[in-house]
Design a protein around this nucleic acid. Structure first.
Length: 508
RNA sequence: GGCCCGUUCGUCUAGGGGUUAGGACGUUAGAUUUUCAUUCUAGAAACAGGGGUUCGAUUCCCCUACGGGCUACCA
């Protein structure tokens, strides 16, 4: 590694929601940059106007913000190398493409999409490359005069790289080590499209150069086009400045085969995008980790562990921890199947580790959505009681709604078969006892009194605990029942006993 | 089909020429919790196959198999 300042970039195409694999690519970029006190650049690769989706760019920015992976330079924040949107850099690319034509490393091609499609259909394994380029309509097969005429007439054309027929090309990938290719295997990729926009291939090289990118991390799906990029760096005379490459392993479907897609999430019931994504064209909402109730720290932690570890048994890392421990050499080569169960575990662990005050805003919002107003202090006490049983912040309501409103239904099947008049009488006496008790009674004290009363009435305490729970909670779940009663308070508890008694004693 | 990349428990992974192949999720059993979850303890569970190299390979090399990616005027 040279002593140049580390500069990395994440270069998404604004075509829709941000996939968890994309977030992981951002994360590794970010960790590497911060580890070496370098810059993290967000560059928007919007060179395909046909696939451009309004709102996608803002959405991506919001995702990064939620994750805490803030770019040092971006379309929004600006920077020394602005603009950071490739559509706004359109004028830059043509010059370099022309230069390549001049040098004989690229050429004009006038073939129409229809002609190429027919070739692909009719010629098995057709590639626009050394085998066929001479028989197609381009500046290699046509005379200079013909080419000039076409160009002057404004005939639509692209510029293609001329891949050498038989060169061996190799580079050292930071993750995979030496990787090599035969240049003749790749086709003559389009560099500049008919609309004057560059393709990814040209744009990534030009912008990485212009933006002084030192390390380029991207998904493994880019490996096959690496030789094109390498050649471009060489032909443009920038080889000495070429970034070091690292091709990240892919995130795979948990079951079947292939890359994880948002369809898998819908099929298997888990989010794939970082945040909810609403597609205006289809009206389809693709759920996100944020709305599902994931903490950003857990989401990031989980993603980091998908393909990386610090060499010890440690699994829980905050973002600063990750910056401290990260090393690209410890990133795995092989793809990882996404495991939602493990993702949930990370979230549950981080909810346990997160201070109640930090959880409070999300929980307050959740209560709001459910039309509940409550004192901060009260919410915090509830949170203290249920925090360790949450997989998601959003399950707070399901897990703790009974602290804020009376149970709407009772699990009568759990009570009725063993319900007796003696038990009704017990609870009536218990109400009296509660009424007389100190308002600041503690859970342990209440439990002692409860048990004493049970003994007095000749009923096993164990027979009464579950009914009591169901009176307060509605079901067979929740923290220690006397903790609940104390938090509900004397009056609240008595009210619930009254109401439940009616339900328990009504004929079914 | 061609090219490229990969392969340790079901999953994520540690390890690395001589180990009882370690951890985590999940799972099973038990304890605690007079509910459920948490927590704790214990258990089952892996080096794809074949050749080399070597005194010795799961570890290094080759082949095969399998998996994945790419093969657009998409990124």
């Amino acid at each position: 590694m040279s002593d140049k300042k580390v500069r990395v970039r994440f270069a998404p195409s604004p075509t829709g929601g941000l996939h968890l694999g994309g977030v992981r690519t951002v994360l590794f970029n970010y960790l590497f940059a911060k580890k070496y006190k370098g810059d993290f650049v967000l560059r928007i690769e919007d060179t395909d106007q046909g696939r451009y989706v309004a709102g996608a760019e803002d959405y991506i920015m919001d995702c990064l913000k939620w994750c805490g992976l803030i770019p040092d330079e971006s379309p929004a924040a600006g920077g020394h190398f602005a603009p950071y949107r490739q559509s706004e850099r359109k004028a830059i690319y043509r010059e370099y493409a022309e230069r390549l034509v001049m040098q004989g490393h690229a050429y004009y091609a006038f073939d129409t999409t229809e002609e190429l499609e027919r070739n692909r259909r009719e010629i098995p394994n057709f590639q626009y490359g050394h085998a066929y380029r001479d028989s197609l309509r381009n500046s290699l097969s046509l005379t200079q005069h013909q080419v000039d005429q076409l160009l002057d007439a404004g005939e639509p054309h692209v510029i293609r790289i001329k891949m050498p027929e038989n060169e061996h090309i190799h580079f050292t990938d930071m993750i995979r080590g030496n990787v090599s290719f035969e240049t003749g295997q790749s086709d003559d990729k389009v560099l500049l499209k008919a609309d004057g926009m560059p393709t990814y291939h040209l744009a990534v090289v030009v912008d990485d150069y212009l933006m002084k990118i030192t390390h380029a991390f991207r998904g493994e799906e880019w490996l096959p086009s690496a030789p094109v990029h390498l050649l471009l760096w060489e032909y443009l005379g920038w080889k000495a400045n070429m970034p070091q490459w690292a091709h990240l392993p892919l995130i795979l479907k948990p079951d079947g085969h292939g890359k994880l897609s948002k369809r898998d999430g819908a099929r298997l019931g888990f989010p794939v995008y970082a945040m909810n994504w609403f597609d205006e064209k289809t009206g389809e909402l693709t759920p996100g980790f944020r709305e599902k109730g994931f903490l950003p720290v857990a989401f990031i932690n989980m993603l980091a562990m998908l393909g990386w570890n610090d060499g010890t048994d440690r699994e829980l890392f905050s973002l600063p921890d990750l910056i401290d421990k990260f090393s690209i050499e410890r990133v795995n080569k092989s793809g990882a199947k996404f495991d939602y169960e493990k993702a949930k575990w990370f979230n549950a662990e981080w909810i346990k580790l997160t201070a109640i005050d930090k959880l409070l805003p999300d929980v307050e919002e959740l209560l709001n959505e459910n039309g509940v107003q409550a004192e901060k202090e009260y919410i915090k006490q509830v949170l203290a009681l249920v925090k360790d049983r949450l997989n998601f912040v959003t399950s707070f309501w399901k897990e703790a709604s009974y602290f804020f409103e009376q149970p709407k239904e009772y699990d009568l099947d759990a009570v009725k078969p063993k319900w007796t008049d003696a038990k009704t009488e017990f609870f009536q006496s218990f109400i009296v006892m509660l009424n007389d008790s100190d308002p600041s009674i503690e859970a342990a004290e209440m439990e002692t009194q409860f048990k004493a009363l049970a003994e007095e009435k000749g009923i096993k305490a164990g027979e009464l605990m579950l009914p009591f729970r169901i009176m307060l909670v509605g079901g067979k779940f929740g923290p220690h029942v006397f903790d609940i009663a104390v938090l509900l308070g004397k009056d609240g508890t008595i009210k619930r006993i009254h109401k439940a008694l009616e339900a328990f004693n009504s004929p079914s």
